[in-house]
Amino acid sequence: MRIPIKYFGLIAEITKCQEETISFSGSFIFELLETLHSKYPELKNNGFQVAQDRALVTVETRLTGEEIALLPPFSGG
């Protein structure tokens, strides 16, 4: 499955890109996160939420192939 992923805020600074498409054979969001954590080890120190097809999802959610977004909290004002 080819999965488009969007990165926001500090997460995009770590991945050094705003979006990418990765080929992935797993079925769940947490499996995708494990892959991303090994690709970008710095992700581990950062909290974020995951959205799939523009809706926030839990890590136990099954991947559908639709767009994933990694969303960190912002504090600035």
Binding site: N45, N46, G47, Q49, L56, P73, S75, G76, G77
Partner: peptide, 20 residues
């Protein structure tokens, strides 16, 4: 409901450190 727990203080820098 969006971000259940407060991030660690040092985890996310603010405008004065980052620029805006």
């Amino acid at each position: 409901c969006l971000f259940p727990n407060m991030p660690k203080k040092e985890a996310v820098p603010n405008c004065s450190q980052l620029g805006v």
